[in-house]
Simulated assay, not measured.
Amino acid sequence: MPHDQPEWVRDQRRILGRRIRDLRMNRGHTQEVVVEMTNIDRRTYQRIEAGESDPRYGDLLQIAAALNVDLADLVR
């Protein structure tokens, strides 16, 4: 995780990761299922959910589609 960013940015990244995890679990998907649906590297996806990395825009689009939510709702 980049350490040169303000704490509030890191907090928001963790919130996003929790939101993604909660949506995935509410839909009954494992991480492996979402990884298969999105073609995102497994470790990258785990780091996104853990709030440890800045997800790329394209990855967020694919995750939103896999979880059947609008991107705006995912990153609200």
Rank of each mutant, 00 (worst) to 15 (best):
D70Y: 09
Q46F: 03
L74E: 10
D11M: 03
L61G: 00
N39K: 12
A50H: 07
R43S: 08
L23I: 09
Y57G: 06
D22M: 06
I48C: 07
R24Y: 04
N68T: 11
E36L: 04
E7C: 06
S53P: 02
L60Q: 14
W8T: 10
E32R: 12
Q31P: 03
L61M: 09
R13D: 01
P6K: 14
G17W: 09
L60P: 11
L61W: 04
D4P: 01
H29E: 05
V34Q: 03
P6I: 09
L67A: 07
R18V: 00
I15Q: 10
E49I: 06
R76G: 15
A66M: 04
A66F: 08
G28A: 08
L23K: 06
L60S: 11
W8C: 04
Y57K: 14
R27H: 07
N68P: 03
D22F: 09
M37S: 03
R10T: 05
D59W: 13
E52V: 05
P6V: 13
G17N: 10
I63P: 10
R76M: 11
R21E: 04
E49R: 06
D22P: 02
D4Q: 13
Y57H: 12
L61K: 13
Q12I: 02
N26Y: 03
A64F: 04
Q62L: 15
A72W: 08
A65C: 06
Y45R: 04
N26I: 00
L60I: 11
N68Y: 10
T38H: 03
L61H: 07
G51N: 10
H29M: 15
R76F: 10
I48Y: 02
T30F: 00
A50I: 01
Q46V: 08
R14D: 02
R13N: 05
V35H: 01
R13C: 03
T44N: 05
N39W: 00
V33N: 10
